[in-house]
């Protein structure tokens, strides 16, 4: 049970990375981006392309860091992929969502368009990499560390947790202490007043997409390291992402963090009682329960 809890924290931290991006975008642009899950997939596969393609081709050594399952190639591919998916998200906004905003399109149009974008991203990945599950490093033995209480944890998983903590701390610092971060929060609070104050809200929107995409990419790569890569991986994350976002109150970054951890733990702990295939259903049930009981989420100030 303690072990499942720890695995839940690992999974939850990955969900949090996706949910924070989703909630930031929602906070500013007020629309639920169904393509967000596929940003995770895109991030994972761009990193795969770097690790097994470009970086091995230019001769970056294929050794591991200590007892981790990856080394320099991943250390380079990771930030590169974050940057790349950040750009993908920004381009998607410029060519698609911004046009819909200008036309003051309704929520359904936005939802359908983002679903379409999600399919396009996923199909590109199917075409390039096929439908099989892939690994950053196939067939490697991953010895686990023995902790007290009989908990087994892999070094990779510890690193995943540390990386998530690092990224979220970085984001927290950015939002609380930089001019652009404060302007992002101000725009999420009241876009018209931000405009009245002279804040260039289009620039804020670009930053938001960039950060959301980059965090999603990080989540996708970390899931790929922890489990495996599959073209459907991000799509399967969509329900947990939305559950985490709604649980933590839509638009609230710290809520998304707590929501993500809660959903992750609930999903993993449920495997003690249910078949693992029911994991997505657990997230779905939690989401339905929140929507019925407390639709504004646990931190629900905003309606």
């Amino acid at each position: 049970m303690a072990e499942l809890f720890i695995y839940g924290i690992v999974l939850g931290s990955i969900i949090s990375l996706g949910a924070i991006g989703l909630t930031l975008v929602y906070g500013i642009i007020r629309f639920a981006n169904f393509a967000h899950g596929d940003f995770l997939t895109a991030g994972a596969y761009i990193a795969l392309f770097m690790v097994t393609g470009v970086l091995s081709w230019i001769g970056i050594p294929d050794s591991n860091f200590g007892s981790l399952s990856f080394g320099w190639r991943m250390a380079i591919a990771f930030p590169f992929s974050m940057l790349a998916v950040g750009c993908v998200a920004i381009v998607l906004d410029r060519v698609l969502y911004r046009k819909l905003r200008r036309k003051a399109s309704g929520a359904v149009i936005f939802a359908m368009s983002s679903l379409g974008a999600a399919f396009i991203i996923r199909m590109i990945i199917f075409i390039l990499w096929g439908a099989d599950s892939l690994f950053y490093r196939p067939g490697i033995l991953r010895p686990a560390l023995e902790l007290p209480l009989g908990i087994k944890i892999r070094p990779d998983q510890i690193l995943i947790l540390l990386l998530v903590v690092f990224l979220i701390t970085l984001l927290h610092f950015f939002l609380q202490n930089t001019k652009m971060g404060k302007a992002m929060r101000a725009t999420a609070d009241n876009m018209e007043l931000a405009l009245i104050s002279g804040i260039d809200t289009e620039r804020i929107i670009i930053w938001t997409w960039g950060i959301g995409g980059a965090l999603a990419a990080a989540g996708g790569i970390l899931y790929g390291i922890d489990v495996q890569l599959h073209p459907h991986m991000g799509w399967n994350f969509l329900i947990p992402l939305f559950a985490a976002t709604i649980l933590g109150s839509i638009g609230n970054m710290y809520g998304a963090l707590i929501g993500g951890l809660t959903i992750g733990v609930a999903q993993q702990v449920s495997t003690a009682f249910l078949l693992p295939t029911y994991k997505p259903a657990v997230a779905f049930i939690i989401m339905i329960l929140i929507l019925l009981i407390r639709p504004q989420g646990i931190f629900g100030g905003r309606s």
Partner: peptide, 25 residues
């Protein structure tokens, strides 16, 4: 500068941050 009748502050920001946003440019 313009002060709207309603929704004329950033509620989740602190007083100081509201003033900083006034000086954003």
């Amino acid at each position: 500068s313009y002060v709207p009748q309603v929704d004329n502050v950033f509620p989740s920001l602190t007083i100081q941050e509201n003033l900083e946003m006034g000086a954003f440019i």
